[in-house]
Amino acid sequence: MSGLPQQGAGVSGDLGNEVEGYLLWQARVAEAEQRAREFAGSLDWLTTAQREEVERRYVADSLLRARADLERIAARCVSLRGEYEQRYAELRRRCVGVALAVCAGLTALAALLLVL
């Protein structure tokens, strides 16, 4: 039992993926907030309101960048899936072609041996 959803797991697999995605995003938010606090903490001259504004903007910028990264990765995954599906279909056609050629060759050889 690996804990990972199996392919074809259906609705429960989709739910598992959504929960995992949600938890990963919440971890990203918590990380951005922690980094924002550390960044603003080094600026001793800021007032409380200014510190909160810097933290808010830092978090917003971090999450915007993270979202762009995730969207770029998702687009690449879709692209790779298409490439792999195309390659698989090509290999399957080749395999069937070779199998048919071998069967035809063996049939011709058997017919030739029967004639002789």
Rank of each mutant, 00 (worst) to 15 (best):
V98E: 14
L112T: 08
R76H: 13
Y22L: 10
I73A: 14
V102E: 12
E33Y: 02
E38V: 08
T47D: 10
R87T: 02
L109D: 14
L70E: 14
R57W: 04
A60C: 05
Y22S: 13
A49P: 00
L24M: 05
R93T: 13
R37F: 03
R56K: 15
L23K: 02
A66N: 00
L112F: 11
P5M: 06
V19T: 01
R65C: 06
Q26S: 05
L4H: 02
V11M: 12
S12P: 08
A108L: 08
T47N: 11
L15P: 01
G82D: 12
L100P: 04
R56S: 13
G41K: 00
C77G: 05
L106D: 04
V29L: 08
Q6W: 05
V11S: 14
A66I: 02
Y22I: 15
L24D: 05
E90H: 00
I73P: 07
Y58G: 03
L80S: 09
D69I: 10
G105Q: 09
R81S: 08
L70F: 13
A27T: 04
D61R: 14
G8Q: 02
G13H: 08
Y22M: 06
S2N: 00
R35E: 09
G8L: 05
L15D: 07
A68G: 10
T107S: 09
A110S: 12
A60V: 10
R72M: 11
G3I: 03
I73H: 15
V115C: 01
Y22R: 09
T48K: 14
R76Q: 12
L113W: 00
G105L: 07
R35M: 07
T47A: 14
A60I: 10
D44R: 01
A68M: 15
Q50K: 09
R93M: 07
L4Q: 10
L23H: 04
L46S: 00
R35G: 14
A75T: 10
L43A: 07
E53G: 03
D61V: 13
A110M: 10
W25Q: 01
W45L: 03
E38T: 04
A68N: 12
A104L: 15
A30G: 08
Q34C: 12
A40N: 01
R81E: 15
L112W: 05
S79A: 08
V11I: 11
G41D: 07
S42K: 13
A104K: 02
L112A: 09
Q86N: 11
L63S: 02
R93Q: 12
V29Y: 03
L4M: 06
L23W: 01
G3N: 01
L15K: 00
A110E: 02
A30V: 12
E52Q: 14
G21Y: 04
G13W: 06
C77F: 15
V102Y: 06
L91W: 00
V19W: 00
S62G: 05
Q86W: 04
A68P: 12
